[in-house]
Write a protein that binds this DNA or RNA. Structure first.
Lengths: 194, 194
DNA sequence: AAGTCATTTCAATAATTTCTGAAATAGCAT
DNA sequence: ATGCTATTTCAGAAATTATTGAAATGACTT
């Protein structure tokens, strides 16, 4: 590995963590190298830094592109592809959440809704049905909240997060009335509004 | 698979999703069966429903216990172990987040803090150092917010989530002053307070 | 259109992870 | 202690996933 010890340690850690999130170690390491780099890198440079085969790096980059996690750049008079990660870390978080939502949450919601349509015969299925229904509601509340937060500019979002639960004393009464009460059930389903 | 089609479909879907989150398919399916069941189940019953080997189920249950995701029960005059998932879905969410935080976020924070201590020589490392620092700050803001929310009772939490970003108009001025302004930087680091 | 360079594909191999059956352990009752 | 039942361990087999080198593709230049 052709990296400073600082970078190498982070890259290894990140690869390790990635593999606990269903991202393969190699892809995680490629991402970490790009994340730390002050300049865009091409595939050959990544091969050099990490010591993987050229084809492995190519596949890793393809996967990162499919996840929208890297941006492709071009340098003048150089036809190789260069890659970077977004400057803004909040942008990275937004992309990550959006992609996981798209791939995991949305299909799960569809499946839950589909299963809720089924008519139920047995006692056991009655209970199972109720559990699925509860789960769907919970996911809807969370994704609704996420959609809401995702609409905020980053600075507002940071403010709100930093405030944490400070506002909760008010949420019960004062502010709710100021704002116009609106509970989860009133909300348009996730992804259905402009 | 000895399950109603309703249950079977959910179990398969859940196993699939689990495997995208670094949880193995089998373990995901075992969890799903327990999640849907209206009564506690013992290992043999899970073997019957899913058709895995007894030892595989034993290992899966052990892993779920290590994650705190199942509860062990005992029935009178029966010395077999019976398992359930918490009734309350919010309890499940809390456990999941707490465990992932413990296993992934906390070690990453330590690693980032450790790397930030390093003295930096090259230009490239200067930039890498800055990126790590930004990342640490972002994670601290998010975990701080999480700690805050986690302290709320479930009903308050649901209220706040349902409210979403509604409060943000106020967060800028009015309420901040009422509440006493407190930004992320003032916060005690995650896990350091009572 | 031949040559060069960059990237991708793909079949094979390697490595890792999951799963199993058999054996070991553990607790309890007689 | 012996037998009975429940659970766990563990080494090997099976399955899955990651990685590679070689060949194919594509795109640009001369």
């Amino acid at each position: 590995m052709n990296l400073s010890s600082l970078q190498q340690e982070f890259v290894l850690h990140f690869g390790e963590m990635g593999s606990r999130w269903g991202i393969n170690r190699t892809v995680g390491q490629i991402y970490a190298v790009l994340f730390l780099s002050d300049v865009p890198l091409n595939a050959e440079q990544i091969v050099d830094r990490l010591g993987f085969s050229r084809s492995n790096v190519s596949m890793g980059l393809k996967e990162l592109q499919a996840w929208n996690l890297v941006r492709l750049k071009h340098l003048p008079d150089d036809r190789r592809d260069y890659f970077t990660t977004p400057e803004d870390l909040w942008e990275i978080v937004r992309i990550l959440v959006a992609e996981r939502k798209k791939r995991e949450i949305d299909p799960t919601l569809s499946k839950l809704r589909e299963l809720e349509m089924r008519t139920v015969d047995s006692e056991a299925d009655r209970h199972a049905h109720d559990r699925l229904s509860e789960l769907r509601e919970l996911i809807e509340l969370l994704t609704g909240w996420y959609d809401d937060m995702n609409r905020l500019e980053t600075d507002r979002l940071k403010q709100l997060l930093a405030l944490g639960s400070k506002l909760q004393k008010f949420a019960g009464a004062d502010i709710l009335s100021l704002v116009g009460r609106r509970t989860a059930k009133d909300k348009t389903p996730a992804g259905k509004e402009a």
